[in-house]
Every structure is written in structure tokens, then in C-alpha cells.
């Protein structure tokens, strides 16, 4: 094979190979917009994290502002200690509320941040004190059945199960 033809083909091969790696990095992996190394950490304690996973998104007003970095059980309080890495450039006030939410019925679990009115901002390593745990469907159903049994009492057979609860808030006594 002619040397210059060989050089040309190897050059074409290497160029499109590198172009493929760049395509994977930029178009598929979205390297430019999400920079993982830049950011600061926030902590929050939840009673129950439900199905939250590592690297789940942290969203404010639906915009992804960070990722969950670690999930641990606090041995003293028996609460889940979640560390989040927030992109630099986003700041949240000290009275921010962190809640664990689900996008859609079968969607991914994420942390939603609702910022408050405080003028002081959370710094690196800061702790979000106001948190709202994940809604566990089994507990909710259990609570509902318990309330229904308590309010229905002896007249449970009279009108079937479809009657609305007379006092849902006072059902548990």
C-alpha cells in the first residue's frame, strides 16, 4: 500500500474516532452544561427518604440544581442524613424547605428545594433544617384504613365502604 494513502486512511479513522468520543461526551453525556466538580455541599435530615437514590437530582422550581451525593443513617437521631452537591451559582436561603418528591406516579424520586424569605444564605456544609419526608404509600393506605375503621364503628355494614368520612382529621382521636 502506498504510504500516503495509508496515512490518509489512518488519519480519517483517528479523526472520526475522536469525533465519536466528542459526540458521546457532548451530545450524549452533556459534558458542557453539567459540571460536577464545581459546587458546594448541603445537608438535610429526613425521617424517611422513601426511594431516594444516590445521584438523584435536586430541583428548585423544577430546574436541576444539583445531585444527591451520599445517604447515611444518623446513628443518634435515627434519621436519614442526605448530602447534596449543589452547582455553584445557585444559593438558597437559611429557611429553605427540602422535600422528597416523585415525578409522576412511576417517575424518579428527587429532592425539591423551596426557598424561603430569609436574607442569609446557606454556605458550604450548611444544614437544611426544615424537611418533609417522602410519602410512603403503604403508610398512607394504612392510615386511611385505620381512620375508616375508627369513624365507621359499628355502622360499617350499613352504607358500604363508599361513604365519605365525616371527620377525617378527628378520626384518629
Amino acid at each position: 500500500m502506498n504510504r500516503s494513502t495509508l496515512d490518509l486512511w489512518v488519519g480519517i479513522f483517528v479523526t472520526i474516532g475522536i469525533a465519536a468520543i466528542l459526540f458521546l461526551s457532548l451530545k450524549v453525556g452533556n459534558l458542557l452544561t453539567v459540571s460536577n466538580d464545581q459546587g458546594y455541599r448541603l445537608e438535610a435530615e429526613f425521617d424517611n427518604i422513601g426511594g431516594l437514590k444516590l445521584r438523584a437530582p435536586v430541583k428548585a422550581a423544577g430546574v436541576v440544581v444539583g445531585r444527591v451525593e451520599s445517604i447515611k443513617l444518623d446513628p443518634q437521631s435515627y434519621q436519614a442524613l442526605v448530602t447534596m452537591k449543589i452547582d455553584r451559582g445557585y444559593e438558597f436561603s437559611k429557611d429553605t424547605i427540602a422535600s422528597i418528591l416523585t415525578s409522576g406516579l412511576l417517575g424518579e424520586v428527587y429532592i425539591g428545594l423551596d426557598t424561603g424569605g430569609d436574607t442569609k444564605m446557606l454556605a458550604d456544609g450548611g444544614k437544611i433544617t426544615k424537611t418533609q419526608s417522602a410519602i410512603v404509600l403503604e403508610k398512607l393506605i394504612g392510615q386511611f384504613l385505620f381512620d375508616k375503621a375508627a369513624s365507621g364503628g359499628g355502622a360499617s355494614g350499613a352504607s358500604g365502604g363508599g361513604a365519605p368520612l365525616p371527620a377525617a382529621t378527628g378520626g384518629g382521636k
Binding site: V28, G29, N30, T33, N36, P57, V64
Partner: peptide
Amino acid sequence: MQAAVDFRYDI
């Protein structure tokens, strides 16, 4: 795809 694929972990 872009939201789920991470440069460091996947690529």
C-alpha cells in the same frame, strides 16, 4: 438521554 448519562460515570 443527556439528563441520565453522566460523563464521568458512564462515558
